[in-house]
Amino acid sequence: MLNYLARRLVGTIPVIVALSVLVFAFVHLLPGDPARLVAGQDATPEDVQAVRVSLGLDRPLWEQYFRFVSNAVQGDFGTSLKTRRTVAEEIGERFMPTVWLTVFSMIWATIFGLLIGVLSGVKRGRWQDYTGMLVAVSGISFPAFWLGLLLIDLFSVRLGWLPTGGYGTWQHFVMPSFTLGLGVAAVMARFTRSAFVEITREDYVRTARAKGVPERFVIWKHTLRNALVPVITMVGLQFGFLLGGSIVVETVFSWPGLGRLLVDSVSYRDYPVIQAEILIFSLEFILINLAVDVLYAVANPEIRYR
């Protein structure tokens, strides 16, 4: 197990290095001169030159890269062009709302997805199966922005039960996390169902019945435990999907998170912020996948003991 963990950790190092190069290159690959971008449209050539020197853009490329990396490791991504605050501050206050929204959505989506998937798998070919899968297909097909608007119209505008947007109380969480998690829950349900149906045909499930294991344990212990192995991989992939989805959902529900910050920064061409956001989104994705790999090994002894 430790060997496996060590191998996975070592394996992420080149990924992180490659990521840092890409994010660094981002500013340099954009059309135009970064110093001019930072200095603004009206700057004189002297101003631009001054900015170039102050940002170190006149140094050789490799030196700039190492400075970028050493600054990033210390949490220094420069200052926002829009607000003139440090990027670290900007991101710092947006970080947790997004984390809470993503984690909360993921948790309910996984639990419901699993339950619907198992129910459909157990009752396959019957009405419970068809209903479950109909809900799942609808969940996948609903565009998040449209669903969000419909929910706001119904629960906030007409019924007045929930706030239209913002952040603070648990009521603020209901609609955004439902909108964000629905697609994931649907994918999880379908995936769990097919994994479950496949496992049901395995010889060891028959062995469990031959031992006289009651049917509910056959389902929830012998079958589900094995079906979880592929499902865990799916959770990791879906996290990536949620990170992307949060951009839309946060905009629709005015959620003060990283997704909306990204949208705002893009429209303002706030390059330091965009750069830092890309780095953070990517790192999150790498870390989540690392965690998933570890979980995968916990669920699957064949990997743990290799």
Partner: peptide, 26 residues
């Protein structure tokens, strides 16, 4: 079915052809 569950593995037991796949891997 519940009565059979009490008998299976207790009074009548079974072993299968494929030992490689007949044990639960987890």
């Amino acid at each position: 079915l519940p009565a059979m569950n009490r008998l299976r593995g207790d009074e009548i037991a079974m072993i299968f052809q494929e030992p490689m796949t007949s044990l639960n891997p987890v």
